[in-house]
Nucleic acid binder design. Structure first.
Lengths: 116, 116
DNA sequence: ACTGGTAGCTAGCAACACCAAGTACTAGCA
DNA sequence: TGCTAGTACTTGGTGTTGCTAGCTACCAGT
């Protein structure tokens, strides 16, 4: 979707994945697939795996290795209590930002109409 | 507001500044002050100035040097046609992201309630 | 033996916001 | 005159992040 999206995802992709895990536990390959389905077409596996390593190292998720019938074992991630708190903070920041931007958009649109 | 906000601002701060300039032309010091008023309390001047240099180099804004009564001359930035197009793209990306996140939030909340 | 799907990992890169310090101009005050 | 404070812009270095582009490993079907 272009460079704008790439930069915008910095910081939000983490929240997106945590939110996915809040719905239900999942493993990397699955998360990547779900993101692609939801329209994040060009998110690459490597990005997701690196992110998962990060949030695991920070103690936001619990990990369980589960054998798969069709390949190597899966690493299933599930949100734990610190992760849930962190996700709450994320929604707080996101809400603030979304509010500001919505307001700004209205102002910019109004200025646009007046200028026309 | 914490590290989450810092990372989230990557990519969106640029859009925010462009949107501010869409409302009306402004100079760096003024933009910083306006951002602070609007709740982005810990955005530092250095960040804004670097961003302005960037969007100028990309040709998204026109610049005019205007003398000030109380200090060095101001560099007044105004959005030009490429800048307006770029801002439109930004709103497109932002809208997509905001939609996804809103949907995700609903799903995550619902899962939360069912789990309780 | 080979291809393709599943599943995970990693080294190097570019972009961005932050930090910290600096320059320069003006006004006011001792 | 010297000092502070407000205005206004600049710059070098840092840490985090997503992307690129590869790699390993396991299994099923041809």
């Amino acid at each position: 979707m272009g460079k704008q999206m790439t930069e915008m995802l910095k910081g939000t992709l983490e929240g997106i994945v945590l939110a996915l895990l809040a719905v239900r536990p999942a493993y990397g390959y699955e998360i990547t697939a779900r993101l692609r389905e939801q329209g994040f077409a060009d998110i690459v596996e490597g990005t997701v795996y690196a992110l998962l390593v990060r949030i695991e190292r920070r103690g936001l998720v619990d990990v369980e290795k589960v054998p798969s019938e069709k390949g190597p074992p899966r690493k299933v991630y599930s949100l734990n209590t610190p992760g849930r708190e962190y996700l709450e903070d994320f929604w707080g920041s996101w809400g603030f930002l979304a509010d500001r931007l919505e307001q700004l958009r209205r102002e910019a649109d109004r200025a646009q109409e007046e200028g026309t």
